[in-house]
Design a protein around this nucleic acid. Sequence first.
DNA 1: CGTTTAGTTGACCGTGCTCAAGGGGCGTGG
DNA 2: CCACGCCCCTTGAGCACGGTCAACTAAACG
Lengths: 249, 249
Amino acid sequence: MLTSTTIDIRSPPQTVVRRLNSLAPLSDAGIATLVKAVGERVSRAGPGEDLVCEGDRSDRVRIILSGWLTRYKTLDDGRRQIVSLVLPGDTCDAWAHLLRQMDHSIGTLTPVIYAELDAARFEELLAADRSLEEAFQLETLAGMAIQREWAVNLGRRIALERVAYLLCEIFERLRPVGLLEGNSCAFPITQMDLADATGLSVVHVNRTIQELRASNLIVLRERTLTISNLEALKNLALFSPSYLHLRAE
Amino acid sequence: MLTSTTIDIRSPPQTVVRRLNSLAPLSDAGIATLVKAVGERVSRAGPGEDLVCEGDRSDRVRIILSGWLTRYKTLDDGRRQIVSLVLPGDTCDAWAHLLRQMDHSIGTLTPVIYAELDAARFEELLAADRSLEEAFQLETLAGMAIQREWAVNLGRRIALERVAYLLCEIFERLRPVGLLEGNSCAFPITQMDLADATGLSVVHVNRTIQELRASNLIVLRERTLTISNLEALKNLALFSPSYLHLRAE
DNA sequence: CGTTTAGTTGACCGTGCTCAAGGGGCGTGG
DNA sequence: CCACGCCCCTTGAGCACGGTCAACTAAACG
């Protein structure tokens, strides 16, 4: 049974290993080095906090052990757009310390546990093992691909497809890190956040979700998403997972 | 006076040097190394060609010496979304050879002249000079930031703001590579492409442009864009250039 | 308990889409 | 040289998708 929190009680570094391993095979030595590095400085944040704000300088790499976050930007008049989700196992801003300031903020949706590495320590980690370096590079490239597909979603899908697509993406990104339970997963994201992620209004997200429910495609209650018919949902969403660049297809 | 083509008759490698230099200062040695590498294999493409297609493997780095391109994705039913513009001086897919296949296509809008480097030669170039390596890394990071702002544009700006924003972005990206002439620049992009870039219909892009013209903000004819009142256009677009991560502000 | 946050519903309306037609510039071939 | 086709831009009419505003419920929380 799923709990309403996304704190993962299983060995947390395992999430990161799975995530990187889903992109490129890690050597045993690489896994050991990674697990050690990730255990050195572990921090926590509550839900609704900002890890980094637009305008800040980010001199640390953050590797998410558990919990969900969003990258978002706000316009001067308050309009807000979530530009991507950061899920367990993901790495935040592997190379952002090269920039003088962040162009977006990173906020938590749930309680989050994350490892922090300063830039030098991260470089050391990459230098220590070739398979690690490649995996982290691929993680960045996959993030860029997700970002592009996000633009397609916002620009060219209608509301129903847009929400369906987002559910598919979340589902297929949680799969390789082992956070699915059958055809269900935790879903700690409010309709307001869904609205800011899909470029819709809250009211319309609500109606769209009800339409997906009425079509018997999903069950969504108590912060748990169950996808009753994944194939049908993917078809509706025009979802094809190749952009995730996962090894096992 | 501007010509209707964007083929840059000025020393082409200069464009690349300017672009990288706008992000991080290049050493003299770095510039020399770069100019040499960029001259080794120069290719050309006509307008309306695809340099790379979704699904292809990309094992080469392409550095654009002159001409405009788009990155785009197509949904199964033909809907198309341009996810970013590639302008003179930009580098295409510095690290894409690590991926097994491209998740998007890259097509030309104009005749294009570009340098091709295979992955090994590109790595060599980075290794040769520290300032070059940093500049290319920043180029990638800036590309990611542009991609994020693109999502904001599609998700949270209304049509008028959206088109205005795109014009501002183009203008401010052409500036550091020296492709502005006063308050004008070449504008070799059709309204159909603008529609695919902004997530609007062609008809509505047309009406939107006319509205910008009627407000005396822009003049757009014969493939030339003149921004009559840049400040006003930026205000309308809620455009703030920090996401471009340019050194000189 | 009152307050806040998230979800839900109804009514109305406007931004932007669709469909359709026509015009102008330009290249190509008869 | 003109005719034709093609691409791009433009305009009109009608409509629908999704936004806004407002009110209400339910759960969570202090």
